[in-house]
Amino acid sequence: MSADGPEIVRRGGLPFRALAPNAITAMALCFGLTGVRYAISAAGAGPIAHWEIAMACIIIAGILDGMDGRIARLLRAQSKFGAELDSLSDNIAFGVAPALILFLWSLQFAPRFGWIAALALAVCCALRLARFNARIDADEQPHKSAGFLTGVPAPAGAGLAFVPIYLWMVTGMEIFRDWIVVMPWVLFIALLMISNVATYSWSSLRLKPSYRIFALAGVGLLAAALITNPWFTLLIICAGYLLLVPFSMAAYGRVKRRRREASAPAAPGAPS
């Protein structure tokens, strides 16, 4: 080995494979901010299609957010920098951007508290992400150890907050744009994000081998539905997600009971 060998290794820099997941995270951030740009245009007497573009940008940001972590693990390119960038991107794309879009679309017409409701969504998203980051290295994480999440994750929260917009786009009824309808819903979703409700994560879902072919067919049909009728399909997805929340709470309750029974000391005289 030449004398320059170790220096080349030391100064070699970051491998390209480590940049790929961070680049996807940065793209998600950019799509989130681009959604705000089109919402501003639509609110300023722009075409209605700009609302659809704004929504599509947030949806694409959610898809990218689901990809970056998996690609990082696949490439073995996890890093502290990537984790911090991902958290910042999530806060902007799924907290700040949806809050501004909902404000420009409806909440700005509320007489007093429209901006407060929009702020609540953004702040609760930031608090949820901060709680997740604070607990990431904690030894005691009951929900995570059982395969559940604590509260509604940020991308899902953003998608649920847009339900009034989905209804408006599907039906064309202005009642769904009324701040009296939108404000309570936004506050409800904001509270769900910072709640201690146990929600399903990908790791908690299990499929029997005999169901895999049906699951693949379902994913293909879902993709087709998103292309042909995106807003109605997203509305169905959000309804299904909310319907799963009571089941996830019940499932976690069963896990807690089993853990208590397993850790409880045996009664005196009971067979060991």
Rank of each mutant, 00 (worst) to 15 (best):
A250Q: 15
G13S: 06
I101C: 00
S201G: 15
Q108L: 08
M173I: 02
P246G: 05
L167G: 03
I227G: 06
F81Y: 04
R112G: 11
S87D: 14
R259E: 15
A217P: 00
L107Q: 01
L226E: 04
Y241P: 02
A130L: 04
V170A: 06
A251G: 13
I60H: 03
G220E: 00
F16M: 14
A118G: 05
R73Y: 13
S41I: 11
Y38I: 01
A217Y: 01
N196M: 08
L85S: 06
A146H: 04
A120F: 11
A217T: 05
K208I: 06
D178N: 09
A266L: 15
A161M: 10
L102I: 10
Q141E: 10
A262W: 11
P271C: 12
L222V: 00
R17E: 10
G13N: 05
T228E: 09
A262H: 12
A134M: 10
L75A: 13
S210Q: 13
C30E: 03
D68S: 07
E261W: 09
L205W: 09
F132E: 02
V152L: 12
A225F: 04
G69A: 10
G12I: 07
P164C: 04
G12F: 04
M173P: 03
W202K: 10
F81M: 12
C124D: 02
D137K: 03
Y211S: 14
M55F: 10
P142H: 05
A264N: 09
L191I: 11
G159M: 14
K80S: 15
G157Q: 08
S248A: 15
D178L: 04
P268Q: 07
R254Q: 14
A72W: 00
G46I: 01
L104G: 01
H50N: 12
N91S: 13
C238L: 06
S145A: 13
E84L: 09
A161C: 01
D178E: 11
K256Q: 15
A23M: 12
S41N: 14
G46D: 03
L121M: 06
G69M: 00
V36T: 06
A99I: 02
V152F: 05
S2T: 12
I24V: 14
Q141F: 06
F94Q: 05
I116Y: 08
F109T: 13
A126K: 04
A198F: 06
A45D: 15
D65L: 07
L160H: 01
T34C: 08
R17S: 13
V96K: 00
L191H: 02
D65P: 06
A267I: 04
K256G: 13
L192S: 02
G218W: 02
G44K: 02
V96F: 07
L226K: 01
L187D: 02
S201P: 07
S195P: 03
M169R: 12
M67I: 13
I53D: 09
I59A: 15
